[in-house]
Every structure is written in C-alpha cells, then in structure tokens.
Computed example of a mutant assay.
Amino acid sequence: MNVVESLVPRAGLRVMVTAGANGIGLAMAHAFLQAGARVHVCDVDEQALAALPPGISSTLADVSDEAQVDRLFTDAEQLGGLDVVVNNAGIAGPTAAIEEIDGDAWRQTIDINLNGQYYVAHRAARGLRESRGLLINLASVAGRLGFAYRTPYAASKWAVVGLTRSLACEWGPDGIRVNAILPGIVSGPRIEQVIHDRAQQRGISYAEMEKENLSRVSMRKMVEPTDVAAMALFLAAPGGSNICGQALSVCGNVESL
C-alpha cells in the first residue's frame, strides 16, 4: 500500500455514529458511507432519521439514557461487529453566569456530553476489542481553553479529553485506538444559537459577537462539518493506525474563547 492509498479507509468498515442525523454527525455518517462503510447512527430527531439516505441504518435513541444506548447496540448488531465508533452526541448547554445556571441545566449537559460517552464506550469495548478498532470521541476547543459563561459545556469537554486519554492507555494494549476530535467554531444552527445567546449575555449585536468570535481564530473563518468528517476518515484509514490518545483540534487555530 502506498502513502496515498493509506489515506483512504478500507471498504466495508462497520461504523456507528451517535447523533448522526444532523450536523457534524451527519457529515461523518455520509463520509463513511461514501468511503464504502456500513453505517448505523442514532439520534433524538425522528424526522432527521427518517430523511437519512439508503445505506445508513438508524435507532431513535438519547445517549444520556443507558437503556436506550443498550437498544442502540442491539440494533447495531446487524452490522456484524464494530470497527469504528464515533461518540458524537452532545449539546451546547446553557449560556449564563455560573450563579444563574440551575442544577437541571448543568446535569443535562453533563449527562449528554460526558455520561453519554461513557455509556457508549462501556458498551463498545467488547466489539472494538474483537476488531482492534477505533473510538473517536467528539470534544471541542472548549476542552483545551476556558470558556466564560459556558462552564457546563467546557467542563464536559475537558472531561471528554480526559476520558479519551485514559481509555487510550487502557485499551491500547488490546489494539484499540482512542482519539478525540476538538472542533472549533463549526458553521450551522448550533453555533448561531450560541452566538445569539452570548450576544444577549454581553448586550451586543449578533454581528458584533460573531466578529469577536472569529477574531480569536487565526484563520478568521468557521470550520465546516465536512472538515471534521475528513479528520474522522483519516483516523479510520491505515495512515492513522499509529495515532492514539490524541486530542486533535480542527479549528483554524482558535486562540481563546
């Protein structure tokens, strides 16, 4: 295999993507499908699941509910095993000062962004051990930087990086690779809502808040979901076979938040 060929995942990979019917998850599901993988996703958005293209099977499931994660893995048994699991599900959480964030909002963010990743990793361990596979956890640049008024989100994403590096040490001897992808400011409805909420918190316009956010990115632009999908494909390709325990930013170099 030459270097160029090593950049393409082998056909027939068995791939699971959580929250795979929208945004980054959908971009990754499409990318793996186009690379010849068999793909199963879950999501809480029933309409988005119904709109998935042929070739992507699905389960309606909320990863913060352990019983629903169990059902997801039961449904995914039709793949005949798992080579790649993408722990993508997450929410933005509240935008507010810490004294204004109530316990329910905090717990919901941690339940989905962190506990959900645990539930998936817990269930994926056996299958990935059998295939000597790959776990990709979605974190964020907020998992390497402080993020005022977004403390539940940032705390959960720092924890995801810790989970990733610990599992890489734990599973590496079994041939399982574990990495985190840290997207930056990704274009789409979620960041639009975050910018709107932060602008309100700061008492400035949406346009001012957006400009301020991009001023902290060296490349002065947002990331596209397909950029994150491309990193996932590379990690699943032979060329990524020695990348393990890493927190890989796809962000245009976000300098601060």
Rank of each mutant, 00 (worst) to 15 (best):
195 I>W: 06
190 R>V: 15
156 S>P: 02
18 T>E: 08
213 N>S: 06
68 Q>S: 05
156 S>G: 03
91 I>H: 03
3 V>C: 02
225 P>N: 00
166 S>H: 06
130 E>M: 06
93 G>D: 05
211 K>N: 12
121 A>H: 01
170 E>C: 03
252 G>P: 09
44 V>G: 02
106 W>T: 06
56 I>V: 15
49 L>R: 01
232 A>L: 12
253 N>F: 00
221 K>H: 09
138 L>E: 02
236 A>G: 10
166 S>A: 14
120 V>D: 06
88 N>L: 07
70 D>T: 15
84 V>S: 02
180 A>T: 06
127 G>S: 13
214 L>P: 01
5 E>A: 08
214 L>G: 00
114 L>P: 05
8 V>R: 12
31 A>Q: 10
40 H>S: 07
173 P>I: 05
223 V>S: 11
206 Y>D: 00
153 Y>W: 07
121 A>G: 14
245 G>F: 10
72 L>S: 04
217 V>L: 01
102 D>F: 00
251 C>N: 15
203 G>A: 02
73 F>S: 03
256 S>Q: 09
51 A>Q: 14
181 I>K: 00
148 A>R: 07
80 G>A: 03
68 Q>G: 06
123 R>P: 08
132 R>E: 14
218 S>T: 13
207 A>H: 02
251 C>Y: 05
47 Q>L: 10
209 M>P: 07
235 L>R: 00
137 N>T: 07
34 Q>H: 15
93 G>S: 04
244 C>D: 15
226 T>R: 15
133 G>W: 00
190 R>K: 13
25 G>Q: 07
44 V>C: 05
106 W>V: 10
246 Q>T: 12
72 L>P: 14
173 P>N: 05
162 G>P: 11
155 A>C: 12
80 G>T: 08
32 F>Q: 01
241 S>M: 08
133 G>S: 03
125 A>P: 03
159 A>D: 11
54 P>D: 13
61 A>Y: 02
239 G>C: 06
180 A>V: 05
246 Q>C: 11
243 I>F: 03
71 R>L: 06
240 G>N: 03
65 D>S: 09
212 E>N: 05
30 H>E: 15
18 T>W: 12
118 Y>G: 07
74 T>V: 07
58 S>C: 14
104 D>Q: 14
53 P>I: 05
179 N>I: 01
31 A>M: 10
54 P>L: 10
89 A>V: 10
147 F>N: 13
41 V>I: 06
70 D>W: 06
32 F>C: 03
